[in-house]
């Protein structure tokens, strides 16, 4: 069975982001970038399925400018077999991503597609679901356990107050939650090998998709700064402040 994993290049989640002065977005100049953590988990799960003999090939896909090839190489170093880079100038909105991925799936015919449930930069949590609709395949979102058995994929989902397990007919779409697995480190010999693994570059036109913009980002702001606390010198002063300034009693 062939697996497709889609990955996104995002700002490293440990880095403190800075909003551009004109509020048009986050400053990405010379900022450390990494695989989106949920995508990294998706890659890890695919590699484990391959190591377990369930999958025969893992194809990793990313959409964006040339720089996303860095993350594709990371995924190849982690154990993916080949990569597809769909080159676009900017990062397209979720519907466009889903349409491009649907075309890739049409061409590749994978048994299972694994995606991160959302990317930590835009926090949309939309692509997996849109892709399932466009490709007409069943979806298991927020997976905390994935098992492939007898032509089905069993997906355990973390829901409020418990677990819920679904059985999906293959081919299917699965999106990963944080607790699915602990991604491995890229080993040096594999990093070196990854440089020679095949990486195909395609354009949206090659896939027959016209990118349409439906969403415009108006502004990005930092959270409001919390004012520093003050010390009061008596209980009476405290009650007075709570009553008349904070108006909570």
């Amino acid at each position: 069975m062939k697996l497709i994993v889609s990955v996104k290049r995002v700002i490293d989640y440990n880095i403190k982001v800075r909003v551009k002065a004109d509020n048009t977005g986050v400053d990405l100049a010379n900022v450390k970038m990494a695989l989106n953590p949920f995508c990294e988990i998706a890659v890890e799960e695919a590699i484990r399925l391959k190591e377990a003999g369930v999958a025969s090939e893992v194809v990793v896909v990313s959409i964006g400018p040339t720089a996303v090839q860095e993350q594709l190489r990371t995924a190849l170093a982690l154990g993916a077999d080949r990569a597809i880079h769909v080159e676009t100038d900017e990062l397209p909105e979720p519907l466009n991503v889903a349409k491009l991925l649907a075309k890739v799936i049409e061409a590749e015919q994978p048994g299972l597609v694994i995606l991160g449930k959302q990317s930590i930069d835009s926090d949309n949590n939309q692509v997996g679901q849109m892709l399932a609709a466009l490709a007409g395949r069943p979806q298991g979102t927020f997976a905390s356990e994935v098992k492939v058995e007898g032509g089905k994929v069993l997906v355990t989902r973390e829901v409020d107050g418990g677990l819920r397990t679904l059985s999906l007919d293959l081919p299917a779409i699965v999106t990963t939650d944080l607790r699915l697995n602990e991604p491995r480190y890229a080993k040096l010999p594999d990093i070196m090998k990854a440089k020679r693994k095949p990486l195909d570059v395609k354009t949206p036109a090659d896939l027959g998709v016209e990118l349409k913009q439906h969403i415009t980002q108006l502004k990005v702001e930092t959270p409001a700064q919390r004012e520093a606390g003050i010390k009061v010198d008596s209980v009476d002063a405290l009650i007075d402040k709570l009553k008349n300034e904070a108006k909570v009693i």
């Binding site: 880095i15 450390k32 990494a34 695989l35 990294e40 480190y185 890229a186 040096l188 070196m192």
Partner: peptide, 19 residues
Amino acid sequence: ESAFEKGLLIDAVLASSDH
């Protein structure tokens, strides 16, 4: 990589994220 090729190290992992 060149340290590996020179035999100065036998295995290595590189952190791919700050985590």
